[in-house]
Computed example of a mutant assay.
Amino acid sequence: MVLRLLFAPITGLAWIAEQIQERADTELDDKENLHKRLLTLQLAFDMGDISEEDFEEQEEELLLAIQALDDEQRRLAAEASDSE
């Protein structure tokens, strides 16, 4: 019991680090998928499968989603550095 209390801060920090790592991994997967969708969209436009208007609309949505993930990543990194 005493050892548990002594190591509680370390255990807590390790848990926080694991949570941040899990979220970062998920966001990287999400970001990679968004980049793949963006490439697919570009190819569809280049092949003439979609109109320029549709391309621009979908491209903007994907770029905003990528930006949101980047912003979240920076926020998490700032929070992690603040808690140290």
Rank of each mutant, 00 (worst) to 15 (best):
E60V: 02
L76R: 13
L28G: 00
Q42F: 05
S83A: 15
T11Q: 14
E53C: 00
W15K: 11
D54F: 02
R23S: 07
A24D: 10
N33R: 06
D30Y: 03
E22P: 00
L39C: 02
A14Q: 07
A17G: 03
R23A: 05
R74A: 15
L64C: 04
E53L: 09
E61N: 12
H35F: 07
I20L: 12
E57T: 15
N33H: 05
M1K: 08
S51P: 01
E57R: 14
V2D: 12
A78R: 13
D30Q: 12
D30N: 09
D71T: 15
R37Y: 08
T26Y: 09
L28R: 09
R4L: 14
A8M: 10
M1L: 10
A14D: 02
S51Y: 04
D82P: 00
L13N: 08
A17D: 05
L6P: 01
L6E: 06
E32R: 08
D30H: 04
M1C: 06
L41S: 01
L6K: 11
L63D: 09
E32Y: 05
E59M: 08
D82S: 07
I50P: 03
E59L: 07
I50C: 03
E52P: 00
T26C: 00
F7A: 06
M1H: 10
P9L: 02
L62S: 04
L69G: 04
T40W: 01
T11I: 12
T26D: 07
S51D: 11
Q67T: 10
L64P: 01
F7Q: 08
E57A: 15
S81R: 15
I10T: 13
A8K: 12
N33T: 03
F55K: 06
A80N: 05
A8N: 05
L76I: 08
L38S: 08
M47D: 14
